[in-house]
Simulated assay, not measured.
Amino acid sequence: MSRLEAEDLYKVFGRRPDEAVERLRRGADREELRADGTTAAVIDASFTVEPGQIFVVMGLSGSGKSTLLRMLNGLLEPTAGHVRFDGDDLTALSPRELREVRSKKISMVFQHFALFPHRSVLENAAYGLEVQGVARAEREKRATEALRLAGLEGWEKSFPDELSGGMQQRVGLARALATDADLLLMDESFSALDPLIRRDMQDQLLDLQKTLKKTIVFITHDLNEAMRLGDRIAVMRDGRIVQIGTAEDILVTPADDYVASFTQDVDRSRVLTAGAIMAGPQDGYRASDAPARVAADTPIIELFTPCSTSEIPVAVIGEGGDVVGVVPRERLLAVLGEPMKSVENSDSAGVRDAVAAPRGEGDGPVEKVNAGA
């Protein structure tokens, strides 16, 4: 069972919202409604998030991503549709039941740190537990551990104005972690930070996720951040989700020109992995003892040196330790050389198809059989 499910969600602001939803279902667009003084912020959004996933929603300002996030924990009531969490329909809960869910099962980390300036770091981190009615000794114990996980051990007695922006955001993250909520909702949580601090916070989140395995919905307008953090990514435009997929799916096979325009400046060498571009027997390769071996999740930027120093393709190793494919030098260059969606010649098209549909571990170790294959 999916941990979180959004089904046919709509959020309309203005007059006669139910009527507006019906018009949207019949094919009306956002601009038609706007002419009548109605704003369709989210239109027919559906997705699932599995336990332990980081699901990133990205889009430009006004695309509806923050409105969508606020429907996931009931801060905004959907005009139509359902939100289910661990099988419970949150849209059917009473206000009291919804507050209970928000206080114990769902935590939110905001873009602006929302810290109490008159409370210490420890008191800020423990605030969610205080709302729950947890005894002081217990909440301080849990908040202290959350601060340690967030990299703020030793700062418990400090006050927010003594901290840098990145440290303040860590307090906000620790506050969410202290409640031990099953679901974290993060709304542009790192957007206000300087680039280096922002990357540090991304590293912190990924490190924490390896241990805590939370279910996370992360909102951002930055595609590089989305691709770095997201197990799956939803791209929004004008209230609608236009594509959902992995970073590799979106980079290699964008759903339309809008998505393609986002990806054109992305450094694909840091997003695509050896496992995504590797070749197999169906591409004309067979078993080989390759001197260089890399894990399937190795970014292809790390393949340049081994590919340039050996005529033999680099072997790709799966989770079980077996060779599951190889990356020949020409394949690496083809992937980096031109956008996949525009490639039409047969040799490069094979690379495009390989990236779009990576093979599993059953394909075996390989070497080139026929240069014309």
Rank of each mutant, 00 (worst) to 15 (best):
K65W: 03
D265M: 13
T91C: 07
A20R: 05
Q169R: 05
A143F: 06
T246K: 01
Q264L: 11
E153R: 03
E319L: 11
L185F: 02
A80R: 08
R228A: 09
A287E: 15
R25E: 11
G151L: 14
G275Y: 02
D18S: 15
M167C: 11
I244R: 01
L272E: 05
L122M: 12
S346H: 01
I241C: 07
A287L: 14
Y127W: 10
D231G: 03
L90V: 15
A150V: 03
E31N: 14
G318Q: 04
Q132H: 09
P160D: 12
V235H: 07
T263F: 13
Q202D: 00
T220N: 02
S288N: 12
A80H: 04
V121N: 01
Q169F: 02
P291M: 12
D222W: 03
A234Y: 06
S310Q: 06
L303N: 07
L173K: 05
D347K: 12
D207V: 12
H112M: 09
A356P: 00
I300W: 09
L152V: 12
D203L: 01
E188C: 06
E7V: 05
G27C: 04
E162H: 05
V327N: 03
S107C: 00
E162D: 08
S120K: 00
I301L: 15
V121I: 09
D283I: 13
A234F: 10
T220M: 01
T48Q: 04
V101T: 10
M340P: 07
E367L: 13
A40I: 14
S107M: 03
N370D: 12
D88M: 14
A40F: 03
T309I: 14
S189Q: 08
K368M: 11
S66F: 03
G337V: 11
A143I: 14
K11C: 02
I300T: 09
A114I: 09
K210E: 05
F218P: 06
P254M: 06
S46M: 10
N224C: 14
E156H: 05
D265T: 13
L184F: 08
K11V: 15
D289E: 15
G239M: 14
G360K: 01
V57Y: 00
A176S: 00
F13R: 09
E31K: 04
L184T: 05
E77F: 12
V366K: 01
D88V: 15
T38A: 04
M236V: 04
A150R: 02
P78R: 04
K214G: 13
V235A: 08
K157V: 07
R139Y: 07
S120P: 07
F13K: 10
S46R: 03
R70I: 14
F304V: 07
I219D: 00
E19L: 15
T48V: 09
Q132K: 06
E248L: 15
E248T: 15
R352N: 04
A357Q: 05
A28I: 13
S191I: 13
L122H: 08
L332N: 09
A349K: 00
T179F: 00
V42S: 00
S94T: 14
A176E: 05
D363V: 10
F85W: 13
V366C: 13
L68A: 06
A295P: 02
Q282P: 06
E77N: 03
A178F: 10
I244H: 01
V109L: 08
